[in-house]
Design a protein around this nucleic acid. Sequence first.
DNA 1: TTCGGCACTTAGGACTATCATG
DNA 2: CATGATAGTCCTAAGTGCCGAA
Length: 814
Amino acid sequence: MELDSDDEPIAKRNGKLPISIKDMPMGELSDDDDEPLGTKIAQKKVAIEKAAAKTAKAARASDAKAKKATSKKVVKDESDDEPLSKPKKRQSNGVASSAKKTNGVKKDESDSDAPIAKTKKGATKGKVAPAKKSAVKFEKESSKDGGDEDEENEEYRWWDMPKKEDDSIKWTTLEHNGVIFPPDYEPLPKHIKLYYDGKPVDLHVEAEEVATFFGSMLHSTQNVENLTFQKNFFNDFKEVLDKTGGARDKDGKEVDIKEFEKLDFTKIFEYYKALSEAKKARPAAEKKAEKAERDKIDAPYLYCKWDGRKEKIGNPRVEPPGLFRGRGEHPKTGKVKKRVMPEQITINIGKDAKVPNPPQGHKWKAVVHENSATWLAMWQENVNGQYKYIMLAANSAVKGQADYKKFEKARELKKHIDRIRADYAKELKSESMADRQRATAMYLIDKFALRAGNEKDTDNEAETVGCCSLKYEHVTLQEPQTVIFDFLGKDSIRFYNEFVVERQVFKNLKMFKKPPKENGDDIFDRLNVSFSKQNLKTVGLTNMLQTSHLNKHLSSYMPGLTAKVFRTYNASFTMSRLLQELKIDQKSTIAEKIKLYNDCNREVAVLCNHKRTVGASHEAQMEKLENRIKGLKYQRWRTKMMMLDVDPKLKKKKGAEYFQLDNDLDEDWIKEHQTFLVDEQRSKIQKKFEKDNEKSKEEKKGKELPASELKERMKSVSELEAKFKKENKTKKVEAEGKGPTVERFEAAVEKINERIRNLELQSADREGNKEVALGTSKIVSGPKNYARTCSNQVSELHRSSLDRCFCPQGQRPD
DNA sequence: TTCGGCACTTAGGACTATCATG
DNA sequence: CATGATAGTCCTAAGTGCCGAA
């Protein structure tokens, strides 16, 4: 392998801690083949390394040998350390098909009001009836004989496949069964109504449905109390009312609905709440059966056949109608998102594949065979005109490959980063204002992981910004070189940071903020080199540094380099560095290791400004945790005292210190805690009794347990109470249990210690995490370990390297 | 040379299954 | 064995960036 370690982007070399695939020398593999993750990656990577063809060939050969030696037939491949299976038959992917780009689907005009008469009942069953014969079948019917999974179900190891020259063509054959439509609206029962001005009103179903959109989300104060949300909803609601004949009172007289404040959805809300609670309360078996039923109906839509392979579809469902939940101050939040009709949906499918049937009485908008695209179905949503796609799942080959490419690109950036940095450092002082702005923007993107910041439509979107769209008021300067950023970024997440920057950057920003600029003006306002004053006049001051220009400049350093690559690069680089800096104590517990890992993860999340809103429950939870720790400490102390009870001489032996009460446990707290323990026991007994009682009633038809029984059982509670009382007085604790020995108590103390340690760790971890969104999507794509964490910016490789050094026996923390 | 159409990634939050734990 | 916390999944909004037409 032509490892040129110095060029390695993300990872730094370190024999102990191979951060990237390429970092792992081949030699390392052989002698440690029960290493769960890293090994496999390395092998895989070796197999696909395109460059040195012969080296790669050699590697593949040895790889094949390894395969012969160790395995015969791979069945399910759960074990990660198993050798590579040979690439399967290559689909010839040549495909001349220089298919033109257009798919003939033009902007969706107003045919959202498609003329399909959508009746209440008729259409209901109209779900695409999976055409009996020709629909794609994914069940393993062919594998009667072998016993194990048939060929098709074998994992497709795209990472073992030769690299494709042309990746603009995404598939040759594509079969699927279309999409899953949401269930039709089920009208409310007659007695559940919307109220207006205190009186129930009747609505046309269509209007009623819209009312339920709002009514069913009353719990979500976030939305429901938002004035824009209310206004938008109300406008759309009134529109439907107008269209459908308005609202009527019980005598059939029209009620003019004029004020949102007079609408009362609580009856609707309570109805749905009761419904879902009833659903939840049903016996498990029933729930299971229903789920199985649903799954069965969904099954044909969950997978497709992509170049002959079975691939999982990401979200095969058409989005259900509802209210648009735009984030932040989105001007359109609360508007009605209409039901998507088949007439709006374009299907993308192989030329020779059977086109899935649209629901009874409906038609697709179009059927195309766009093999340069990865989507299976597409429509435009009515609120913002956004395109919605049905695509493959993240663990599919196409997505995996794309993901892989992303990290390769970030890796590639390492080779150029020094030059790029040197250049923009120089250009910070450029004569040309445009260059200076560009260089400053690059500095911010590189240093602080800002997003590019494309232009936005200010009227129809929330006002959020990225680097290039930073406005005057988002940047505050503090001499001599501190910059305070305060703006809303993607998803209206606040970015607030005070950074000390290079003096030149500070000077530049100061210059970019010079009058006559004021609030609302772009910081980076120069889009091009040749800008004379009059040009500026004629074009206006609105020209900003556009991301496309920035990207064009970047691509001159390296093909495909764009602003977003810096985020991936810096996040990965940081993760890599942090993991290497970790001081791993061999004796650390799993919990401690997890904590360390989370610390790294957290730091990267901070870099990327991945935040979450800290819930109100957080505080309460922290307190609870704290109390549990205290409770354990108390228990530990009591156990120690019992030791003393068995052998008073211990006090000398172990020292008085050992038996000291922890100083965060004061007398009041202990009293409180004791009451708590007593209460707890009481309610436990009560509960148990009630349950036994039920049982008795059932078994011995109606025979209740006598109250005396309960009294009897409750005795232990008062005993406990008495015991505590006595302990409080004597400051001694009687040894509990049969055959109390010092050893036994010592063991108990040790156990408690362990638990305390864990909880304390947890507590610290959680506190640190409260605002930070750690990678939620641990998507496993492609090679099992080539997943992502830390919100798609950091390769899973880091995780595996972590596991490698953390978990010798493959006992992964998660 | 810009602009909008389009395709795809990134992201937070809601929802749900699972796990720990008392 | 219930119950609450946590992890994992689903959902879809909100970004980025490319490309071709005007």
